[in-house]
Computed example of a mutant assay.
Amino acid sequence: MTDPRRPPLPIYLNNDEAAAFLRLSPRTLEKQRVVGGGPPFKKFGRRVLYAQTDLQDWAEKRTYNNTSEVNLGK
């Protein structure tokens, strides 16, 4: 039985799953890990994983009212 007061454990996604979740190409996430600007990720040895909550937070921060705001957010 699980404790309802305990928050659920984060769900970790690999690169392909995270890209599908965000509707991006896997290559886009790979590039963003190198140049920056992408969602936070975790390294477990050679494995790269993304917490689903981090992906949701990162996506929410990219909300704009018009295209002029996009350049101001950099």
Rank of each mutant, 00 (worst) to 15 (best):
L24N: 09
F21G: 02
T28C: 09
T53Y: 01
Q32F: 08
L24D: 06
D54N: 04
R33H: 07
G37I: 11
L9A: 15
R46N: 10
P10F: 07
K42P: 00
L29Q: 02
D3G: 10
V34L: 10
T28F: 10
V35R: 01
L29F: 03
G73A: 15
A51D: 08
G38Q: 04
I11G: 03
A20C: 03
F44A: 09
G38V: 08
P40W: 08
Y12M: 09
V35C: 00
A59Y: 05
D3S: 12
L55H: 02
P8Y: 06
E69I: 12
R47F: 03
T53V: 06
A51C: 12
G38T: 11
E17N: 06
A19H: 03
P40A: 10
S25V: 12
R33W: 09
F41D: 04
K61N: 03
P7Y: 04
L13A: 06
T63R: 04
A18C: 06
A20Y: 01
P4F: 06
R62N: 07
N66M: 04
P26I: 05
Q56S: 14
N65S: 08
Y50G: 01
G37L: 10
Y12A: 10
E60F: 10
E30F: 05
I11T: 15
L13D: 01
T28Y: 13
T67K: 12
F21I: 05
T67D: 11
P40F: 08
N71D: 04
N15I: 14
Q52A: 11
E30C: 05
D16H: 14
R5S: 00
W58S: 13
T63P: 00
N66E: 09
L22C: 08
T53E: 09
G38L: 05
K31Y: 13
T53D: 08
L9I: 07
P7K: 12
E69K: 10
N14M: 01
L9G: 14
